[in-house]
Design a protein around this nucleic acid. Structure first.
Lengths: 259, 259
DNA sequence: AGTATCGGTTCATTATTTGAACCATTGGTT
DNA sequence: AACCAATGGTTCAAATAATGAACCGATACT
């Protein structure tokens, strides 16, 4: 691992639950030498990727990432395009919708929309890591990812998030086959209890899966009829999003399913 | 300059006008050795900061920056807070508004809002570099920045963007004094001809200037009365934004100006 | 007074980065 | 078809930068 990768890997320790990290904590988290962490953080700070909080001297993400994200969006406007699609989809279904993107081997939630229709909603955060086997989005991605990638995920230990999480690799492979048939993944309470979510894959220009579009609703609200409606709406929205970002579904993706 | 800074400095060559860069171009732009650039870009790619376009092999910003930006916003929600302020301000003034933030020694536009009131509007891009001496935002920042910083900017060569750009450091110092008095900066056609813009500084938690909030309008539309209205609205909006992001104006900032 | 944190610093040792030169391909010119 | 000038990518000895154990001063708690 080069020095640059090491420095950038430090950025991965910042999450919603841990937005600021002190030098000693970061040293422990990363397992690197304190002097090394200190110097790397200094360089990240010079470049604006990191800044130090005013009170204590703990580190947090800096303003430079905003500039880069704005440029990325200008070049590849996935998020801005997705916002419209998410909004329309949440209005159509009356439920919370969200988009997640594959970043390296990690699936991250990146954008979401709520519907005002119901008082109870599934709440979402952006930049959260999604479980592959526990979420509909994760299953949708696995079903259409390269087989080696899916196998790597499935052969690693699969944590049990709730009582309903499916953790048997064999059972999941069966699920994935069904998803490949229908084009829509489903998960009931696999990550958070009482959350019923549906998801479809989103494809990039080379017809490879780049993420997933999902609808998440309180489980008690979802009848079979509603599930079918959501699935149909998702398939349409997924195809729209894939097309608008200049992507293309692979030939084997069930294009005409559910009118 | 450490290896990490070198790698990150490569990211700075990506702009709106140049969203994709090939290896050879990047080598020329950066002045580094080709092998060095190649290896650094490889590391940035592994971390998801860079990805390679499908067709040719040129580089562009990767999806990882989106995740970091979402986390930064969760920790320090300047952009999301500013969007409301910008929207209200553009509705109130009927003109285009934008927020720019100081990143290192560079001032970048990062968020904007349009008003539907007029058919002709000043158009904005996010993640564009703003001139200090040619824009109202730049002047607002200079007026309230550390004196050494302002002097560094003013003693460097000041490019003439339009026929109306003020490029004499002495004249600019006089302007800055006036801005410190009124709290509002103004520039007519200093960066783009026919654009009349007003701007106020935005302050961080340590009462240091972190950016500027601006209103930009076609010069022909701005009468003295309208300029006064815009200035008043800007002062109010600037104070709101500074407060909402947990910032504080310095004691010498004209707080009560224009009720 | 003692001790266990914390952020930050030092400097000889070590390992990584560097760059000139080299390949293989592609696309345009003669 | 031969040539030239690009491109992205690769090699390896030499130069440089990264590393880590130990140390410092400050703060807070026992």
């Amino acid at each position: 691992m080069g020095t640059v990768s090491k420095a950038l890997s430090l950025l991965a320790y910042f999450t919603h639950g841990r937005p600021e990290i002190g030098l000693s904590d970061l040293t422990r988290l990363s397992g690197m030498n304190k002097a090394t962490v200190y110097r790397l953080m200094g360089e990240l700070q010079e470049s604006g990727f990191i800044e130090q909080a005013d009170g204590d001297r703990s580190y947090r993400l800096g303003p430079e990432v905003l500039r880069l994200a704005a440029l990325r969006e200008a070049a590849v406007p996935i998020l801005s395009v997705s916002r419209r699609v998410l909004k329309d989809l949440s209005e159509e279904t009356g439920e919370t919708t969200h988009l997640s993107l594959l970043q390296g081997s990690q699936l991250n939630s990146l954008s979401h929309a709520y519907s005002p229709r119901h008082a109870t909603r599934v709440m979402m955060d952006d930049a959260e890591v999604l479980s592959y086997h526990g979420t509909a989005s994760g299953l949708a991605v696995l079903a259409f990812a390269e087989p080696e990638f899916s196998e790597t995920i499935l052969t690693a230990p699969l944590p049990r998030h709730t009582a309903d999480t499916v953790t048997d690799p064999g059972a999941i492979r069966t699920l994935l086959d069904a998803i490949r048939q229908s084009g829509v993944a489903q998960s009931v309470g696999g990550f958070e209890a009482e959350v019923h979510s549906h998801a479809v894959p989103v494809f990039g220009p080379d017809a490879r899966v780049i993420g997933a579009l999902a609808v998440a609703a309180p489980a008690s609200r979802i009848s079979d009829a509603q599930a079918a409606e959501i699935a149909a709406a998702l398939l349409r929205a997924g195809q729209t999003l894939t097309r608008r970002i200049g992507g293309a579904a692979p030939a084997h993706y069930p294009q005409q399913a559910a009118a």
